[in-house]
């Protein structure tokens, strides 16, 4: 592998979580309607933010998180700044609890993620309710958060392998 190619690969590795986040946002903006829309699309960027905030904050700097959120706002048509705030606050809280999560069993981390998702959902709901001037129905949000929490073990395992074997490369 030439010097140039190696550099490119290194850059790609460094940017991989960010690119995955962007891909997750596109999935949220695509017309995925599994089972006639009864299965909500999981918020994969939230999984990515959580995962790399715990296991490799260097790989997902706050600026990346900010732009992932901003892209999501722009693509889904919500008020600008909503998703950056949700993701960044999640990152802040998760990073402050990082020492607890490191080295724990995946089951424990999963429960942690479920709580993080609930917290993120709460912020989202509060802001949107404030904006619309009434308490909004929670049903769809809860379904979506449940779907996101349900896919965490799978995505967590895949991201774990990616992070360990490709990105950190020990």
């Amino acid at each position: 592998m030439g010097y140039r190619a190696e550099n490119l690969f290194r850059l790609l590795k460094a940017a991989a979580p960010t690119l995955l986040g962007v891909l997750g946002v596109f999935l949220l903006a695509a017309p995925v309607r599994l089972f006639e829309g009864f299965a909500p699309t999981p918020i994969i960027p939230l999984v990515i933010v959580f995962f790399w905030s715990v296991y490799g904050p260097d790989y997902l700097p706050p600026l990346s998180v900010f732009f992932i959120g901003l892209l999501q706002d722009l693509l889904t048509g919500g008020p600008l700044g909503l998703w950056p705030a949700v993701y960044l606050v999640t990152q802040f809280i998760v990073m402050s609890q990082r020492a607890y999560f490191l080295g724990r069993e995946q089951k424990v981390v999963w429960i942690g993620f479920a709580f993080a998702a609930l917290g993120a959902g709460l912020i989202l709901w509060l802001v949107m309710s404030l904006m619309s001037g009434e308490l909004l129905p929670l049903r769809f949000l809860m379904l979506q958060l449940a779907a996101t929490a349900a896919i965490y073990p799978l995505f967590g395992a895949v991201f774990g392998e990616l992070h360990r074997r490709v990105l950190v490369e020990v």
Partner: peptide
Amino acid sequence: LGQDRREGLGRKAHSRFVLVLLILVSVLLL
């Protein structure tokens, strides 16, 4: 997992300051 090799996009691990700043920016944007 979780060991800091500083290979990522962000060179400063735990850059709390940037994080808090960006939270403020997004709230202002909102």
